[in-house]
Design a protein around this nucleic acid. Structure first.
Lengths: 222, 222
DNA sequence: GTCTATACTAAGATAGAC
DNA sequence: GTCTATCTTAGTATAGAC
């Protein structure tokens, strides 16, 4: 579909790759240019500075997020909406894990990006609240209505900082796709005490699905 | 008791102050020296580099943590042990909040510090597991035994990244003591679905206690 | 122990030729 | 659009006098 990327796009793609592999902080504009075999001057022709590149990457991330998430409020079943949310969020989290590995640092350096991030997060929070309300109305979870908003924040916190947590725990910063998907299991664990008996089988089924993605034996209890 | 601090100690104290106020990343060794009215050369006489200062600060943090936490396994009531844990952890989190505001970044820069951090965290995890087991045996929470370890990790994640979460959500990085204590309420929320009916009154009492510290109206539901 | 002065380095960024 | 060459800056760190 798009065989020859323009230099500008190549810079964005190479940056994502290098940031994920080595950490955003360790990768300089010179490294990116060298990796592509272009000059630093050329890179600065296409982007004003490193923050500019990061803003473009975030835009790409947002675009993917919005295109992948199911339109809200349609006829899909409540638990499927949850699974869709988890699938999309954790897949993108893996593809852009450098961003989550140092989120406060990256946002602190660029107020403009921070604002964009917050705008997106408001949408995400609203989405999570909608999914939770649907689960509640479908009788999948039993939870006081006033707690939903707070619970949504807790979920968002666990999701957002799962990768950071991994990095603080791991001896080396070896983040792989399987370890990222272990975060989904942590989120499901938050749901478990609220699950209605009738919904338990389906929740256990979801759990096994993600245990496979996380490279864990499915017999393992969570 | 210790009226005249040696220059070395003054550097540590000033660093904590400045790091908390402006963020660790923004404060340079020159800033620290200027703040104290000493020369950069003098600072480097006392510390090999900035990481060296951070390691001393972490040692101080560890010292306080260990001195404040109640000895495990004594006759104290299970919920009191939980309250003690929360009090100590969140008070120190406030006094050293710069550390939690950029944890993955700080640890990534200094493998030696990372190792020390991990050693301390193992102790903390063991402590949390012990508290949870006590709560379970006292009938305060009802939770399958195999879930305790995973639940302990979730608690640690929420605690550790509460400040980071605040910083990503807040328009500006205005972290105050009250907002830090709102993290305790998030942790209590994790407990609530597991609480036995008999223990609910005491948990609600704890909740009100921390709502006061968090500067929230105690009538508010959480 | 403390200062002044200075060197080093790495990263970010630009000018001007092609 | 791309290159080469170069500049700036800021942060880290050291040497040597006092």
């Amino acid at each position: 579909m798009e065989k020859k990327l323009r230099t500008k796009d190549k810079i964005v793609q190479a940056s994502i790759e290098l940031f994920n592999a080595q950490g955003e902080r360790q990768v300089t504009t010179n490294h990116i240019a060298a990796h592509l075999g272009i000059s630093p001057g050329n890179l600065y022709y296409h982007f004003r500075n490193k923050e500019d590149i990061l803003r473009h990457i975030f835009k790409e991330y947002t675009r993917l997020l919005e295109s992948r998430i199911q339109p809200p409020g349609d006829s899909t079943e409540a638990l499927d909406a949850l699974a869709n949310y988890l699938d999309v969020v954790f897949e993108l989290m893996w593809r852009f894990h450098f961003f989550y590995a140092n989120l406060p640092d990256i946002l602190a350096r660029d107020p403009a990006l921070h604002k964009e991030y917050q705008a997106v997060q408001e949408q995400v929070l609203a989405r999570v609240v909608r999914v939770l309300n649907a689960l509640r109305q479908a009788g999948v979870v039993e939870m006081p209505e006033q707690e939903i908003s707070e619970f949504a924040h807790t979920i968002k916190l666990v999701v957002t900082f799962w990768i950071s947590y991994l990095k603080t725990q791991a001896p080396e910063q070896t983040i792989d796709q399987a370890s990222v998907y272990q975060g989904v299991l942590k989120v499901l664990l938050l749901f478990k005490p609220y699950a209605s008996p009738a919904a338990m089988p389906r929740i256990l089924q979801l759990q096994q699905h993600y245990q496979r993605l996380a490279g864990l034996p499915t017999s393992m209890s969570v």
